[in-house]
Nucleic acid binder design. Structure first.
Length: 641
RNA sequence: GCUGACGUAGCUCAACUGGCAGAGCACCGGUUUUGUAAACCGGCGGUUGAGGGUUCGAUUCCCUCCGUCAGCUCCA
């Protein structure tokens, strides 16, 4: 018997003749499955339904319920996009067209960029291609054959030339369109039902800024109509929460062409900034961090020592030294080297370690204009950046401590985090023994947190392994914020030392650590996470006191002053506008609480409290109780009102 | 930096193929004294991002620069 054995997901084993296709297996299991089948997973690899099976393997039919099937659909959607573009623009040269998170794209070399009207026409044509239900046919061809088939497609020829001799060259055909492609694909174009083209923009061929720009069309595709609707809703929601829009509406910060990429913070924005900074400062103080301040301006000697003067100089703001006439001074783009200098200025005992330096100074980086974006990519910012100097034996304990601290910060802001463990890259310094130890220490610390993490082999810094923290916000987007990096290079470059128990000099290790990343970016994320409706402790304005009429102006003023005396950020709105008007104004400013003072309240020493978002439901309580309640919420840094 | 789009009052947006720059909100003044999401009346507000060009005439067409946005590159 020369059959092959396929182990199905339920553990059962099916025997089939060699060369059987997944489609045939699906049919033999049931007609329903055969209809739903999109592709198959064979020993973990995803293949077309018509790919003959040659060996014993684990085997599963992919249907639209399998998350991996979405990638297959989107990859096929990219081909359908290219099919449509070729129909409408026969001279378009084709680049790459992969699936990406939430969708797909395809790159084309065309005579003029695509317009929004083009996109509409292409989208309609895609629907036609789907309607025709062309099967996706796979062929494996020789190099000569591939070169012949794509002789009019220079970009594809370049790709073919890059393929190794041992690689199979496969091409896929759907109706009129033929593409060089590894696959797999859904059985036919008709499987694409719920899709939408999103945008067109230029992208460098092969991601290389020295090469020509192609026109890239982005699209999204889903199995279910509801999923597509949910996705477009998510895009709208993200737009509604855009921190640039909310920053202006809530009067937090502004930008002006006199200083591109640097924010003007209003009083409210400055308050928010300060509250976050105060929290981080207090937390660090509790954990034994030492806050220091170092110069903003340095001559090039520092950057030569740190290694930044070479390649990184173009990102630094250089300052003209009027005596030398040279631009050999620079504003600091990061704190690390200055911390190392301060460490090196003293003689340190092993008894002092770990030494944890923290600085909130202003940093400047000369980002290229095209990279600037709201608060997420700025030229001037502040970091909650720290450097910890310690003995190798202290790494495990310290990393665990730092990881817990970072997770505590995210919890405090209601953000969820996942961790990535990045290990030794190809190009690195230090011997294998050092890396073995560093990775083991870092991993042990990571496991001690009990949190799940992803492994990113080869993704570490050249000077040591690291842990990155990805934070998820309220609409499911991911942001890389925190990082813990072990650094074995800086101690050498800066000739750092400590005196050990044995009274001889040793090299410490440095841990680079950030929790929020930059306050600017962190605030952008918080604005979008909370959609501008901050918890009480973060709100720039915590209470708005509203007298109903002039009669209660004095009583309201006393309530307002009482709140202020208790350290609560209160604003008194005793304007001549109607109460309705003033309530609407405060509601739109997303103030957490309104304290309404009318005749009854003034006489009883109470306030009618209206909570943000709770509508007209009010809670009449004594002023003292209101103040106490707010104080407790603020101290607890409560997330809910 | 690259490709493309965009830039009109503090904000959101109008102004037909080149023909008198306009509205709402905000702001200011007056009236109103209000019980939980917009009272009423009046007023101020513009070198249409900047500079140049074409034209009898430019917010509109062309060029340069600045800025913003999307994507790419970059994010040490």
């Amino acid at each position: 018997m020369n059959g092959i054995h396929l182990t199905l997901p339920d553990g059962s084993v099916r025997e089939a003749p060699e060369g059987t296709t997944p489609r045939e297996i699906a049919k033999s299991i049931g007609p329903g499955l055969a209809r739903a089948a999109l592709a198959a997973r064979v020993d973990g690899a995803i293949v077309d339904l018509d790919r003959p099976l040659r060996r014993d393997a684990s085997f599963a039919i992919l249907t639209d319920r399998d998350p991996d099937a979405l990638d297959v659909l989107r990859h096929s959607a990219a081909h359908i996009l290219a099919t449509a573009v070729r129909e409408l623009f026969p001279r378009a040269a084709i680049g790459f067209g992969p699936p990406i998170e939430d969708g797909f794209y395809y790159d084309f070399e065309v005579e003029r960029p695509f317009t929004p009207d083009d996109l509409e026409a292409i989208e309609r044509k895609m629907a036609e291609v789907a309607e025709k239900d062309y099967p996706f046919l796979r062929e494996e061809v020789s190099r000569d054959e591939a070169n012949r088939r794509f002789r009019d497609d220079p970009l594809k020829l370049e790709r073919i030339a890059d393929l190794g001799d041992d690689e199979t060259i496969s091409i896929y055909t759907d109706g009129p369109f033929v593409d060089l492609c590894r696959g797999p694909h859904v059985p036919s174009t008709g499987r694409l039902k719920h899709f939408k083209l999103l945008s067109a923009a230029a992208a460098y061929w092969r991601g290389d800024s020295r090469r020509q720009m192609l026109q890239r069309i982005y699209g999204t595709a889903w199995f279910k109509k509801e999923d597509l609707a949910a996705y477009t809703h998510r895009l709208e929601e993200a737009k509604r929460r855009d921190h640039r829009k909310l920053g202006r509406e809530l009067d937090l910060f502004l930008f002006h062409p006199v200083s591109p990429g640097s924010a003007f913070w209003t009083d409210k924005g400055t308050t928010l900034y300060r509250v976050i900074n105060d929290y981080i400062r207090e937390l660090q103080q509790r954990h034994g961090y030492l806050e220091i301040k170092t110069p903003l301006l340095y001559n090039k000697a520092l950057w030569e020592t740190s290694g930044h003067w070479g390649k990184y100089r173009e990102n630094m703001f250089l300052v003209l030294d009027s005596e030398t006439g040279e631009h050999d001074m620079s504003l600091k783009p990061m704190n690390c080297p200055s911390h190392h200098v301060l460490y090196g200025l003293g003689r340190h005992s092993y008894r002092e370690l770990p030494i944890r330096y923290s600085t909130f100074d202003v940093l400047h980086r000369n980002e290229v204009t095209g990279a600037l974006s709201g608060l997420t990519r700025v030229r001037q910012f502040q970091q909650d950046d720290c450097h910890i100097y310690l003995m190798p034996s202290q790494i495990a304990g310290e990393v665990r401590h730092v990881a817990e601290m970072i997770l505590e910060v995210y919890r405090t802001f209601g953000l969820t985090a996942t961790m990535k463990f990045a290990t030794r890259p190809e190009v690195r310094i230090g011997d294998d023994a050092m890396w073995d130890r560093a990775e083991a220490d870092l991993r042990a610390a990571l496991e001690a947190t009990g949190m799940p993490y992803d492994l990113k082999p080869g993704d570490g810094a050249f000077y040591g392994p690291k842990i990155d923290f990805d934070v998820g916000d309220s609409i499911g987007r991911k942001w890389q914020l925190g990082t813990i990096q072990l650094d074995y290079a800086a101690p050498e470059r800066f000739d750092m030392l400590y005196v050990g128990e044995d009274n001889t000099e040793h090299r410490p290790v440095v841990i680079h650590r950030a929790m929020c990343g930059s306050f600017e970016r962190f605030i952008a994320i918080l604005i979008e996470h909370f959609a501008g409706a901050f918890p009480l402790w973060l709100s720039p304005e915590q209470v708005r006191v509203l007298p109903i009429s002039d009669q209660q102006a004095e009583a309201a003023r006393r309530v307002h002053q009482g709140l202020r005396d208790a350290g609560i950020r209160s604003v008194l709105d005793a304007g001549s506008q109607t109460l309705n008007y003033r309530i609407r104004d405060a509601e739109m400013a997303k103030v957490p609480y309104m304290a309404v003072v009318g005749q009854r309240e003034a006489e009883a020493g109470t306030v009618a409290v209206r909570t943000r978002g709770a509508g007209s439901k009010q809670d009449v309580i004594p002023v003292g109780e209101f103040v106490t309640r707010l104080g407790e919420s603020i101290r607890a840094r409560a997330l809910e009102l």
